[in-house]
Design a protein around this nucleic acid. Structure first.
Lengths: 204, 204
DNA sequence: AAATGAACAATAACTGATTATTGTTCAAGG
DNA sequence: CCTTGAACAATAATCAGTTATTGTTCATTT
């Protein structure tokens, strides 16, 4: 609610404590350590050294290592959603938006922190990909865009926003997690065409 | 191709070496060990003891422990698909079939071998759920039913069978893996109603 | 012909002592 | 006030020595 930026989404995906510079420094250091060493092999002592702060400060702001790690990933996800939300403004249709989100999601999975983690801790990555919380945070992204698509006549108003959001989430998550589910949906145009059909007409 | 049972599916989901009784005994013993001890804590010596056979026989039929473990899971999946295929005969529509498969898939995940494994090796279960091979074997299940639905006029023939199969797979897998993706789709009727809408009309 | 069981080196799992890290507290400093 | 750095017990990671398991071979049995 604090930002004045134009956005079709209802929420700015910022953590409440984003303002605190100490928190940001700790998260920066934590993120760098996780990228370089993985979760298992970063100690909070190492985070403190990298961030040039005391271990005490880290434990003041984050109760334990687990909380810090979660906060790092939550911030990354928020950054991803903010980037994606910004890109949405230039995309005319819901289909374009979902296709773009899928392409960006795949890129993030292939090149981002999960890709480096997958080298040393693939089981951890798999667990995170299946965690309900991971997706719960993305659900709030879509309703605004669904409503816009309904207002533009792109999709029907007979499906309520929550239900439409659910389908969009399922298709988007599925397309990121499983590029090939019988069909090999690889390129952006292929994904767009698929979504065009499935979102607007299903198999009918 | 060997079975004479009526089936809308193109394939009987049987392994080629299903006939060999030794193979079956080894798989039985392997499955029991995995159920009781998990993958990590079953040795092939233990499998041999449980199955009352020599270690040599196991290594004759399965090159290594990994191959045996994979064979156990493949056979379980084939059994699941065979059971589900049998149930399909009594279900009139594609929506009924997919909904049923989702309900059975959830039950299997909650009560089957994956549920017991999840207690001691959740990371292993997560890895298996994300493995492309796991789904690749299920893809062949649907085309027959898709064609039947097309012939009955339930779904359009303008979508080719492979594409329709892909959507069905994505929705089914997603509904098993993520019961709540914004909407909480819990009961059989809720799943049926959701699939009815999404398969036949999408958001249009 | 396949199954067995023994033998074997190579590899992986276990175990207990040692070291590092975590989580907590607190007095001192900016 | 928050940060620092030190101290501390409790917990977890590490390491080298030991034991178990794996993967392979083969002579013997059925």
């Amino acid at each position: 609610m604090q930002g004045g930026r134009a956005s079709v989404g209802q929420y700015e995906f910022n953590a409440a404590d984003q303002a605190d510079p100490m928190v940001a420094r700790i998260l920066d250091a934590g993120e760098e350590c996780i990228r370089r060493f993985g979760i298992r092999r970063t100690s909070v002592g190492e985070v403190a050294r990298v961030g040039k702060m005391s271990r005490g400060s880290i434990y003041r702001h984050f109760g334990d290592k687990d909380t810090l790690v979660e906060a790092v990933f939550t911030r990354l996800q928020q950054a991803f959603l903010n980037r994606t939300e910004a890109a949405m403004e230039g995309l005319p249709t819901l289909v374009d938006k979902v296709a773009y989100a899928v392409v960006m999601g795949r890129q993030d999975a292939a090149e981002g922190i999960y890709a480096s983690l997958a080298q040393t801790e693939p089981e951890t990555v798999a667990m995170r990909y299946l965690a309900p919380d991971f997706y719960a945070r993305s659900v709030a992204f879509w309703p605004g865009h669904i409503e816009q698509a309904q207002a533009a006549g792109e999709i029907s108003t007979t499906v309520d926003v929550a239900t439409a959001t659910d389908l969009v989430m399922r298709l988007a998550v599925s397309l990121v997690l499983f590029p090939d589910m019988g069909l090999k949906l690889k390129t952006h145009p292929e994904i767009s065409a698929y979504l065009q059909r499935m979102l607007t007409r299903g198999l009918g």
